[in-house]
């Protein structure tokens, strides 16, 4: 019994990965990638009825696990809040933060973290009840505005209103769902959030979606992506090229469905990408030759992941918009994988 207690205690108090060490080695030693996620954001990271994690951020994490360990399920998801997320990363509690985190200069410069890649381009929009008849920000002078503290939205409201010399009353909520229900109950005149968030809020929570309009002007830029500690350049490269590989796979039309065929019968470029060519594509990053094949076969390409979690294959039904491939007029662009 005593042994059991000591063993249990040591399991709980175990030393984490040293923050300054080689993350890839730690991940391989632990046999899993530990990702910090939101846990309560549909489409990005949430749990389904079977308790299984799903979402765009979750799939990014799974892709990293597939690339580094060959197993997309070798993941551990740690729920983080907007206050605890960077501490969790800095202290080594998590290997990568995949928590719809906006890349900004101050976060990148001050927090000791690096943004490895962008997986989702978002922006801030205002939603108002249609019967207010508001069509532009200028008409919102003196409005009560629902915001979450410490978010990009809070800063955007501040700058948008002060630039125009307008007044507003911020009404602060800790929880996005409380904020939404307060907004739909009429507690505030406007709701500012990322446009993706607004669309999903309106589609799922509004008593009648037609009663609310999202103002056409989108403010600010919210490029979101996985974040890593800045003292491990190789790990950052691995995370970045995992995302680029998913985008490249979509560009080349490689899907989880046809990846096996493509590996056999595709062009030399595709064979090389999927680890069936002459050169070892995993060598530069210290990964297996088939790392891209593992990502695409187990998780899918960027387009599949987007459709499954946010796009037409999901209840959110968000158009690709800015998140279409660059050749389709969007911003998603991967540097060449060669």
């Amino acid at each position: 019994m005593r042994t059991a207690i000591i063993l249990s205690a040591s399991a709980l108090l175990a030393f984490g990965q040293p923050a300054a060490a080689d993350t890839l080695e730690n991940v391989q030693a632990a046999g899993k990638v530990t990702c910090g996620v939101n846990g309560s954001r549909a489409g990005f990271s949430s749990i389904d009825s079977q308790g299984r994690w799903q979402g765009l951020d979750v799939d990014t994490c799974r892709a990293i696990a597939a690339a580094t360990l060959g197993d997309a399920e070798a993941t551990e998801f740690v729920k983080t809040t907007s206050q605890t997320r960077f501490t969790a990363l800095q202290t080594g509690e998590i290997d990568v933060l995949t928590r719809n985190t906006t890349m900004t200069y101050s976060r990148d410069g001050e927090l000791g973290v690096d943004f490895a890649a962008i997986t989702f381009y978002d922006g801030q929009g205002f939603m108002v009840p249609a019967d207010l008849g508001v069509t532009s920000i200028e008409e919102l002078d003196g409005a009560a505005i629902c915001v979450l503290p410490g978010t990009t939205a809070e800063q955007v409201v501040e700058s948008v209103f002060s630039e125009r010399g307008l007044n507003y009353t911020p009404i602060v909520f800790q929880d996005a769902k409380e904020l939404s229900s307060a907004f739909f109950a009429g507690r505030c005149d406007a709701h500012i959030q990322s446009s993706s968030g607004l669309a999903s809020t309106r589609a799922t929570l509004a008593p009648n979606p037609e009663d609310y309009v999202i103002l056409p002007k989108i403010f600010d830029k919210d490029p979101m992506g996985p974040v890593v500690r800045q003292d491990d350049a190789r790990w950052k490269d691995i995370v970045a090229w995992t995302v680029h590989a998913m985008v490249t796979a979509e560009e080349m039309g490689i899907t989880s469905g046809n990846v096996d065929d493509m590996r056999e019968t595709g062009s030399d470029t595709i064979k090389r990408l999927l680890g069936a060519g002459d050169t070892d594509i995993g060598a530069p990053l210290g990964l297996n030759a088939d790392w891209i094949y593992q990502i695409v076969s187990q998780v899918g390409n960027y387009g599949e992941v987007y459709d499954r979690n946010l796009g037409s294959g999901s209840p959110m039904n968000l158009a690709r918009g800015q998140n279409a491939l660059w050749k389709d007029g969007g911003l998603i662009y991967a540097p060449p994988l060669k």
Binding site: L13, Q17, A19, A21, G92
Partner: peptide, 14 residues
């Protein structure tokens, strides 16, 4: 966690 310094984490639950 910040006081503990490099490389040491105590489980969040604990």
């Amino acid at each position: 966690p910040l006081f503990l310094g490099d490389g040491m984490t105590i489980d969040k639950f604990v």
